[in-house]
């Protein structure tokens, strides 16, 4: 807002103008870094790549290519995929399943950590939070590589087991497969999940827990009837925080996934960079985003997120 503006007028705009003023840096960044590229991506998905040229006439062919039916369905894991290019649908399904596995594993690990932090730690809470975030002081790539060292053919687990005489030759199923991707992603995302769960647990009024006990609940009943429902908003945010970005991840599958561990992100990357078909890559990205958004909304609707939020407000 210009300084020359009279005070009274500024006060007339009141909170709204001040609010937008405060938001404007973030809004600018969002517009420049998110909205504009998204619009570009949507536009691109309606174009066609002709060698080095982009044909800018409108077409839905890129989307059609993703779902074009075939006479003979391709079987994968016993599921028929009746598409001409079944790899997209297969990778999409596989990515979703792997992401769900990651999300489930992250929540199962993060919830007890957050619970411990919220209810058992009474002193040095900040120190505990710092300790939990220590792995994040190193780069993501280094953390992924450290899992290669852990799980590799001559890695920590294999050489450890061999020196203990439990196995005679290295296990080859540890690395370069979907479970390795799930393990690595789980480790990478646990801390992100701990914090929102911790906040929602920390917010719970301790007298509610005493009231539940006073009304006859055992510790487990109290957890199930009071603690868990009241920490659901944070747990749901944590789950979405992990699920949404991991579906599209391509770095981890590239490094530890091997040929069997590829995900939809790898396919998009390949379309953009190797196959020089960015319009189809754009279409695939948009379809993936739509599916993830739809699933997230479905999930929130299924757990009654709105109701929970309204009540805990």
């Amino acid at each position: 807002m210009p300084d020359a503006m009279p005070r009274q007028t500024a006060a007339g705009f009141s909170g709204l103008a001040a609010g937008y003023a405060l938001l404007s840096p973030a809004m600018l960044i969002i517009v420049a870094m998110l909205v504009a590229p998204m619009l570009a991506l949507v536009t691109l998905s309606f174009w066609t790549q002709n060698g080095f040229e982009l044909d800018t006439s409108f077409t839905l062919a890129n989307y059609w290519a993703l779902i074009e039916p075939a006479d003979e369905p391709t079987m994968w894991m016993g599921i028929p995929f009746p598409f001409k290019n079944p790899v997209y649908a297969i990778l999409m399904l596989k990515s979703l399943v792997m992401s769900l596995a990651v999300t489930a594993a992250v929540i199962l690990i993060a919830y007890p950590m957050a619970y411990f932090l919220a209810f058992r730690v009474t002193r040095y809470k900040a120190l505990w939070i710092i300790i939990i975030t220590i792995p994040f002081w190193t780069s993501y790539l280094l953390r992924v590589f450290s899992w290669k060292i852990m799980l590799g053919f001559n890695g920590v687990i294999n050489s450890g087991l061999m020196s203990l005489g439990i196995i005679s030759e290295p296990l080859s199923f540890l690395l370069y497969n979907p479970p390795a991707v799930v393990i690595t992603l789980t480790h990478a995302w646990v801390t992100f999940a701990v914090l929102p769960i911790y906040v929602s647990l920390e917010k719970i009024d301790r007298s509610l827990l005493e009231a539940a006990t006073d009304l006859g609940d055992s510790k487990w009943q109290r957890f199930r009837r009071v603690t868990l429902p009241l920490s659901l908003p944070g747990t749901i945010s944590a789950a979405l925080l992990v699920f949404i970005p991991t579906v599209g991840d391509y770095v981890t599958p590239t490094l530890v996934g091997g040929p069997g561990g590829t995900m939809i992100g790898n396919s998009i990357q390949s379309l953009f960079l190797k196959q020089d078909n960015s319009p189809r890559g754009a279409a695939l990205s948009i379809v993936m985003m739509a599916i993830v958004a739809l699933l997230s909304l479905l999930f929130m609707w299924a757990v009654g997120y709105r109701k929970i939020r309204a009540r805990s407000a």
């Binding site: 007298s207 509610l208 005493e210 009231a211 539940a212 006073d214 055992s218 009241l230 805990s312």
Partner: peptide
């Protein structure tokens, strides 16, 4: 005898109404 097995009930200062 733990609190949940006592024949007492309490009205808390903050009322401790379950918000959910």
């Amino acid at each position: 005898v733990p609190a949940n097995l006592r024949p007492t009930n309490m009205v808390f200062q903050s009322y401790a109404i379950f918000p959910h």
